[in-house]
């Protein structure tokens, strides 16, 4: 039982990070139909930015805030300079643009930062908390707590504010949204900025556990994309569930089956789910969008 619990803690921690990235994918996809392959690089900017700002002498909260703002700026620039000019391009072209952006961000980061691994001090110390025979790190609680808070905040924003409703309306039907006077360009920029902020925040809280490096984004992009697809692209609930599921599957596969093939198990699960539910677990959009 304690082993099961231990694995579950690990899986939920990793899964919470994936969930935040998957949510970032979902936000951008809903607003613009774009799959943003630079999503994981926001996580890197959050982590690496905080590390280097702290090294420059800033306190953790200040450093984290500036790093998140920097990621938001990168997100807005990505939208303004790369996505906006290519409006109407095919999905593959859009994927390639964001992959190009991801390579570009990594290329600049390795010059701006460096190529070594870095870590941040854990926010509340390194003493493991014993729970039912297993242990959990205080930082894991920070990760899960942050994820939960962001999900709730996002829900409240989308469902209970005018701007949030505008985002949802744009996602549902861009033309109609335009007709009722919604500033679609602003909504799109908002989606990019928000998802960059979520990714960067995930990077800040996760770095004490996962460590960070200029090219760590690719891994998070792949896992986050997989999570978003598993849940059903475009569905925020699906993104969260997909993220947690992939985290748990990986961890349990490593613990009970084979640590070598845990990534294969996660991707096999996705293939199987997609075969029976071609639009993911929570995908229901009937209209063919691609």
């Amino acid at each position: 039982m304690s082993e099961f619990l231990q694995l579950a803690f690990s899986g939920l921690t990793v899964g919470a990070i994936y969930a935040l990235i998957a949510l970032g994918f979902t936000l951008i996809y809903n607003a613009s139909d774009v799959i943003n392959f630079a999503q994981g690089d926001f996580v890197m900017i959050g982590g690496m930015g905080t590390v280097f700002l702290m090294a420059a002498g800033l306190a953790l909260p200040v450093a984290a805030l500036i790093a998140v703002i920097a990621a938001v700026l990168v997100g807005l620039l990505l939208h303004r300079l790369a996505i906006e000019p290519a409006r109407g391009a095919s999905p593959v072209t859009l994927i390639m643009i964001t992959i190009g952006a991801s390579i570009f961000i990594k290329g600049v980061s390795q010059i701006l930062f460096d190529k070594q691994f870095h870590s941040l001090p854990a926010f509340s110390g390194d003493t493991p908390i014993p729970v039912g025979g297993a242990t959990i790190l205080p930082q894991s609680l920070w990760v899960m707590g942050t994820a939960l808070a962001l999900v709730v905040a996002l829900y409240l924003f989308l469902e209970h504010t005018l701007v949030g409703k505008a985002v949802l309306a744009t996602a549902a039907n861009r033309l109609a949204a335009k007709l009722v006077g919604i500033n679609v360009a602003l909504v799109l920029a908002l989606a990019f900025g928000l998802s960059a902020a979520m990714g960067a925040l995930a990077g800040v809280v996760a770095t004490p556990i996962t460590l960070t490096r200029y090219d760590i984004g690719t891994l998070f992009t792949l896992k986050g994309f997989a999570a978003a697809m598993l849940g059903g692209m475009g569905n925020p609930v699906g993104a969260v569930v997909g993220g947690l599921l992939i985290g748990l599957i990986e961890t349990f596969a490593a613990g009970y089956l084979s640590s070598t093939y845990k990534d294969a198990v996660a991707f096999l699960m996705i293939l199987v789910v997609l075969l029976f539910m071609p639009r993911g677990l929570f995908g229901s959009r009937a209209v063919e969008r691609v």
Binding site: E3, Q6, L7, F9, S10, T13, V14, A206, I209, T210, L211, I216, L219, T251, F252, A254, G255, S259, T260, K262, D263
Partner: peptide, 20 residues
């Protein structure tokens, strides 16, 4: 005899096996 991937960020499952 356990292993982990080059980019893994959590090795507690494998270490837990060794522990047990």
């Amino acid at each position: 005899d356990e292993s982990y991937g080059a980019t893994d960020s959590d090795m507690t499952p494998q270490l837990n096996k060794i522990k047990n």
